[in-house]
Amino acid sequence: MTTRDRHGLAAVPFGLAGLAVLLAAWWSVTALALVPRTFLPAPALAWAALVRGWTVGDLAGQTAQTVLRMLGGWLLASLAGVALGSLVGLSATARRYLGPSLAFMRALPASAVIPVAIAFAGLSPGMVLGVVAFGSLWPTLLSTVHGFATIDPRLRDVASALHMSNAAFVWKIGLPNALADILTGMRLSMTVALILSVTGEMLAAQQGLGQAILLAARSFRSADLFAGLILLGVIGIASTLVLAAVERRCLRWR
């Protein structure tokens, strides 16, 4: 995000004021009953639902389920994406033959494979995990291929002069040079993984926040619905922040 470093620390109070304005706007809309309470609960009600769900209810467990699903699918996708991406990225011929098919797969909405996955694996946790992994594979895979494709040709000459094996090339030259692209891809993959985890939970009736908010909406419990939305937002922010920190740390040498 470009705004993060544009204003420096002086901007922090402004940012916090912005959050206060949002909260105040939310509160006044509900206090003046501009929007029916079935759609938009008062902030205090949403907060109460969040606290109650977390302490008495099963919100913590559902959050854990969603986070585990997201991380599991993302890890599988990252491993497969980097491995396959390195293989394809190694040779220009492979890129020529496989690149267009991969680009086609990426353009395919990941959720569109859910019906197919249901046909194969039924409404199981494994099906959802498979869809999360499949859908979040593409950003990492394609950015790994891109990272390998843009390696300085002179480095390839060095590798061949040193009689490096393919494996050594990938390990010593390819991955370090493609790291920036790979990490960007992995960050995108994480976003996709969260979206697909939630979608999968809604569709396949798997325990988790996706199902929790769907059930809350069906029974017109808008406070519980917003509690779930807040938690999903927190998961989204936390995963982005963690990955951004990892990215900064890994790329410090550049």
Binding site: M1, T3, R4, R6, H7, A11, F14, G15, L16, A17, G18, L19, V21, L22, F39, S111, T191, L194, I195, V198, T199, M202, L209, G210, I213, L214, A216, A217, R218, S222, L225, G228, L229, L232, G233, V234, I235, G236, I237, T240
Partner: peptide
């Protein structure tokens, strides 16, 4: 406005869009 909006933007855009489907 940019400085004021930035946390709000970061927060709201983190919500996975499909989670708004029930709402």
């Amino acid at each position: 406005a940019d400085m004021t909006a930035r946390y709000v933007v970061e927060m709201l855009r983190a919500i996975p869009s499909i989670a708004l489907l029930p709402l």
